[in-house]
Structure formats: C-alpha cells, structure tokens
Design a protein around this nucleic acid. Structure first.
Lengths: 401, 401
DNA sequence: TGAATTATTTTTACTCTTTAAAAAACCCTT
DNA sequence: AAGGGTTTTTTAAAGAGTAAAAATAATTCA
C-alpha cells in the first residue's frame, strides 16, 4: 500500500488535467481566460498548452477578429484528431459501443448482440469496437482507451465480483477483451460509470457532490462525492437498491425483504401490476396506463413513488448530495413517480439538509452505460497519459557523440 | 470558488503532514524508517525534519545504543513542549474541555457547568480552557488551537445551523469564543469530530473508510471516506439517525415517523420501557434490567437491536465502510443490542459487501466529543501551520545595507 | 500612413520542490 | 588503530509554479 508520491510530476498532472477539462467544457477559450478560471499563472498555462499542442491533444486556432484593440486571442480546442475512446455497455441481451473523441463527443454508436458467455461477450464487444472504428474510418492505432460498464459489483482491481443478470461471478472480463484490443481498458459498475459520465458530460459538470440513481432491472446508485465517484474500500459502495424500506416487506432478488428495489424497480412495478391483473408488460405499457388514468396503474405507481421518495429522503439525510439524478427506467417513469415521491420526500427529509437539494432527470438517457464507458476511458487517459508532460525543451536535437 | 493552488508549497504541506502523523503514531521512529514508511526520499525527510526541529514541532533524541554496527539512529518525537490544543465538547448541561499536546496526548480534563445561553456557554468554555491551561502551568501563549464539538448541524463555514438540544439556531459560537481566546478555533458537529478523533487517535488509524455512529439523546453519524470526514456540500451530511426504518412508524423529534433514532436512541429505549411499565431511568438502569434477565427490557432491547442491525445493513449496502464504530450510549448498550443486531444485519446486508466489514465499539467512550475537538484543532494546526515550511536557509543574517 | 494604445502571450529569472548519488558521521568489530 | 556497516546529510540536478518584463499583434488616433 505505497501511497502515490507527492512531487512535481503530480503537480503537473493535476494542473494539466484541470486545464484539459476547462478547455473541453469551454471550447475556444483563450489562455488568459483559462488562467482566470483555473487560478493557474499565465506562464504555466503557456508551458502546459504548448506541451499539449506538441503532443496533439490541444489545437490552437486564430480567433475571428473581435474588433477590439490588443493582441488577438488564440482559441484553444481539444483536438478531435488525437484519437478515440470507446465506451462499452454490457447487458445480457445487447452490447452497446459508443466511440467518442477525447473530449467526449460521441461520433459513432454500434449495438451488437450480447451474450452471457464471457468469452463470447468479449468477442462481441471487440467486434462492436472494430465496427465503430470502421464507421469513422479510423485504424486500430487511433483507439486510445476503452471503458466497460456493466450491471454488477466490480472490485477496485477491475474484476467482476458478481453480476447476477449476466450470471457472472469473479471474472476478469477486461483481461478477456485485452486479448483482442491492445490499449488501456477500465471496468466499472454501470451506475458508477454513468455517474462519472454525468459529471464529465452531463448536467452536473459544475457539481462535486451528487447521487446518480439508475433504474434498470434493479435499482443502482452512484455516489459522487468531493469530486469523484465513491467506490469504498472494495469498490462495492452505492448499492442503494437494497436499502430496506419495510421490515419484512416484499421479497427481493437479493434474498432479503423490503428492499427499495422490490418496490420501485421496473421489474417490481410490472410484477405488482401483473398481480393486480393489469396487462402492462414494459415501461411503455406502464406509461400508457398512467396517461389513460388507469386506477390500478395509479395505485401501484403511487405506492412506488411513495417508497422512492422515502429512499431519496434517506439518501439526503445520510449523504446530503447537492443533486439527485434519476436515470434509466426511473428517468422514463419520473413523470408518474415524482408526484407521490415529492410528498414522501418532503415529509421525511430533514428540512435544513433538503433545502438546497435538486432532483433532476438524467439527460444521458439510455446512453448512460456506454457514455459511462467513455467517461472511464477518459479518466484512464488523463490518469496515465501516453504523453510526456515535461517542459518540452526543443534546443536542437543534435546527434549525440 | 477559487480552488486551492496546486504548487510546490502544497507538496511540502502534504508531505510535512504525512511525516508528522507517522512520527506521531510511531514515536521514536528514525528517518530511515520514516522514508520507507512514507515513500519519501531520505533527502527530503532530512530537510523536512530539520525544519520541524527548528520550529520546535519535532524533537530529535539520540537513541539508546542498539549494539549493532553502523551510525546510530536518531529517535524522532513530536515535541510536547511545542504547545497545547484544546478540545471543547459542548452539551446542554456540561462543557467538557480536554487539553492535549500537539500529538494528541491528553494532559488535562476539565468539566464546567453548561448553559443553553450562547454567550454564557462561550464564557464557560473559555473558563474551562483557562482552568485546563492553569492545571498544566501553561500560559495563554501556549494555546495553539481550539476545536469545538457540539450536537447539532454545523455549516461548512463553522456556524451552528441548528442544535435542537441546545436550542441554538444560526449562531456563530466560534466567534463568541474568539473574543476570549486569540487563537484559531474550529467548530464541527460532535459525531463528525468524534470520527476524526477515531481516525487520528482511536482504533481506526490505519483505515480510510469507516462510519462512526454515536448514540446520545439521538443518533448521529460521521462518515469517514477516502481519508477524510465527509461533510457534503453544506457540511450537513451524516444524519443517519433519521433514516426511515418503518413507514409511518414511531414519531421522531424531527417531525417525521419511523426514524432509526425513534427506535435505537437512549431516549427512545427509555420511553418504550416506560410505556411498558418498566422503571429504568438511564442507561445504567437498562443494563441492570438486561443483566437481571428482565423480560420487558429483553423485548425492548431486542426490538432496538433489530432496527439497529437493519440500519447498519443499509449503511453497509450504501456506503460500504470497512468498519463501523459504535460510540456514546450505543457503546455502552452494545452488549445488549448486538445479539439481535447481528441477526438482522447479516440477514439484510449484501453478502459480498458485508464480508469484510468490522463492527467495533469505540475506545474513546465518553471522551469522544472533547477528543473530537482536539482532533479538529490538530487538523487546523496542520492545515494552516503557524510555521514557515520553507527550507530554512541559515546563511548568516547579515544586516542589509 | 505611422506611431501610440491595448490586450494577449511568451520569455526570463527566480524560488520552490523532490531526488539520486556521493559524502560525511558514527558506532561496532577486529 | 584500522576497517566495516548503517544512518544521515550534503551536493547537484531536474522539474514545477510564478512575478515581472518583454514580445507580439491587433486596433486607434494623429
């Protein structure tokens, strides 16, 4: 457990990363504005940007004349030609690949058939990435990093601990893909990955503390705290779907009773509707029933909303995020769930803590998992950049004798 | 919101702090061992230690001869003569002051009568600190910092947002004390402060992720994550006592129903016993009844333990700490509560996450709040050290001309 | 047209940091 | 007394951020 050395190289990496993100989120920014926004000295900015330009990560372009006096600003942009990052969302029935430039702009989407057989899934993922690269006419060498997001517990070392939907347990899927793709690969739980994507590319770019809640077959959570996703000592933190709402309540797939997931997940709502004789078979069916004012649907959604609000209140009291982001099926069901949820939320969250919490719906939608993969790949790219960060002295490369 | 500058000075502060804590926790360590344990180069160690010695924070003493060949090691210790830190625990009926040296060794304890009138409380706290300083024959100048811990919500800026037991709301108690004491003062919620003390002085020194749960009149929580206490965007995170256990359950002082606090706090247990005709009036009475095998006490404690286990399961699923530390009245009641709690805990926490979680009782006991104050003062001392950290060039201070 | 003005970026000179290697310090053994 | 073995300090070098000065490149004004 040797801790990372705190030295000059770390300084440079941190400051370079800061500047990268500011440029990424403010395309065309000038060095002076960059200095103001980052608090870093203009001289340092000059050195770092020159370095990033030399290595092809940043591009300088002369701005259109502003009409004002003074030396014209130079616009800085992340250079889309630097290469590509691939995000892979693995689900039992489909593997979705998003290819993006290093500033996170998606430029290709490919979906291939999934598999619960690990080697087959890795091969399918590889084919998806290859197809995406072909669609942008890029070669293998242009792939700078890959991130994989899947529904399940992922250890800090990037191994699948347990993924019930895929039937995987203690599996190194990243290593299997690495046999096909020679570039850095990072693996993470899909909700944590989506939370990172929300922070890098979504609506919570300016916020360091939020909770991402994703409904899929179950309910998952990603806790973004102090500017990074919280993984916990083994990487397993954030399983908010198994928060207990009712002692001895409904049976949950985890073996316990009364879990949030057993009341609010897509699967739970559909099961409850079926038990009450309603014929809805998917989220669209639920929405249709809700719009038509179906009494059964209304009652079931009211109950689900009540427990969702209660769960959110618990999260607010415990974690006190600045924002809660609803994603996946929860985003689609939000219009039906929120009225009841807001009632129980306000009744159960502490007023002083609740005051400044926002509740929003994710803008990433169903792209959350593959975009989460892109976010993982970008983090990997910046944590361990394939470039030299040093001050590029260019005193003539004369032949050494 | 200008972020802290990442530069050489930050490096030095981080590395100096690391070395300080290693010396504090390994008294008499040599520089070579320090280098191995910290990963910092021996040359850097030499510079930093020389600096800390010059400023009186570290003392070098020649070790007793080891009998082995080679240059003898020099023992490093935090210099107890550097000054004192005061920790103040404010409660409605008593104000407790602990005076400690800068390595956190307590050297005086003073308790004075409390007050719910803020100015009177500040004056009493000041008198407690003065008495403690007198008891170690130290002057005002020896006081390097003060930390205050109190039961209530504290903002990031160090103001009391709401402290129901004290009847305080939106109050700057630190400023009131600052009129009497001219030194840095830091204020924090008592459970967060206790969590910091647990990390600095308690049994969780080697752990970066744990949850401290303290029973007092209510139930409070301190989440220690990634090596620091989590405060959340407004400093209010960690109110685990208001986690909802039973929809529409017992009424809680917060206005909601079914809170953990309404089942497991000292007050709740006593109220439930009274409702069932038992005469226990305090924790000692509960313990006596439990030891005598009283049926009512057994039933009430069984129920409380069940909900405690459920709450711990929720925390484990959501936060996934490496350890849960029980403090305050929960520590004293632990023997009675844990049997039932362990049952519901194991039944409701996800097995993969639960596997490596430890459940322990705090060693700080009732000293948690004032020792939390000491911990706050120590953090303040290291965050903003009253010394120059630079390489102390001592080339003769010739008079400038 | 050409010099002054204005604003942005780069260079310079400096201090700060960590660090590898060499040197010094110090005790034990022979 | 000389040699050997550890620990600590010094030395020299490389890399980082930064304040101030200089260079750059436009507009503005006479």
């Amino acid at each position: 457990m040797t801790r990372t050395r705190v030295n000059s190289a770390l300084i440079r990496r941190i400051n370079t990363g800061r500047l990268f993100h500011i440029i990424r989120q403010n395309p065309g920014i000038s060095q002076q504005r960059l200095s103001i926004q980052s608090g870093i000295d203009p001289a340092t900015i000059s050195i770092i940007i020159t370095n990033l330009e030399t290595t092809g990560i940043v591009r300088r372009t002369t701005d259109a004349p502003t009409g004002r006096a003074g030396r014209p600003t130079v616009a800085l942009n992340i250079d889309a030609r630097a290469g590509f990052l691939a995000g892979i969302g693995i689900e039992p029935d489909a593997i979705r690949v998003t290819l993006a430039t290093i500033d996170g702009m998606a430029c290709a989407d490919v979906t291939v058939a999934g598999s619960t057989e690990p080697e087959a899934a890795a091969l399918a993922a590889h084919e998806g990435v290859a197809a995406a690269l072909r669609s942008v006419k890029a070669g293998r060498g242009a792939l700078l990093g890959v991130g994989i997001a899947l529904p399940g517990l992922v250890s800090l070392e990037g191994r699948v601990v347990f993924a019930p939907n895929l039937g995987w347990r203690d599996l190194d899927i990243a290593a299997m893909l690495a046999r096909h793709l020679k570039c850095p690969i990072r693996l993470e739980n899909d909700v944590k990955a989506a939370a990172i994507a929300e922070h890098l590319f979504g609506a919570s770019r300016d916020i360091t503390d939020f909770v991402y809640i994703m409904g899929r077959s179950g309910i998952g959570g990603g806790l973004y705290m102090m500017g990074e996703v919280y993984r916990g000592p083994h990487g397993l933190a954030g399983e908010i779907g198994h928060m207990k709402m009712v002692p001895g309540g409904r049976a949950c797939g985890c073996g316990a009773r009364g879990c949030l997931e057993a009341y609010v997940s897509e699967r739970a709502i559909l099961a409850e509707l079926a038990a009450k004789g309603h014929q809805a078979r998917d989220v669209a069916g639920i929405l249709r029933g809700f719009e038509q004012g179906d009494a059964i649907v209304g009652a079931v959604l009211g109950e689900a909303g009540y427990y969702l609000g209660l769960g959110l209140a618990n999260l607010i009291n415990i974690v006190s995020p600045r924002r809660i982001v609803l994603g996946g099926s929860l985003a689609r069901l939000a219009p039906c769930l929120l009225p009841a949820a807001m009632d129980s939320l306000h009744a159960n969250a502490l007023a002083a803590i609740m005051r400044d919490v926002e509740l929003v719906v994710s803008v990433l939608g169903d792209d959350a998992a593959p975009m989460g993969g892109v976010a993982l790949a970008l983090h990997q790219f910046l944590d361990d950049p394939p470039i030299k960060l040093g001050r590029g002295r260019d005193h003539g490369a004369g032949p050494p004798e």
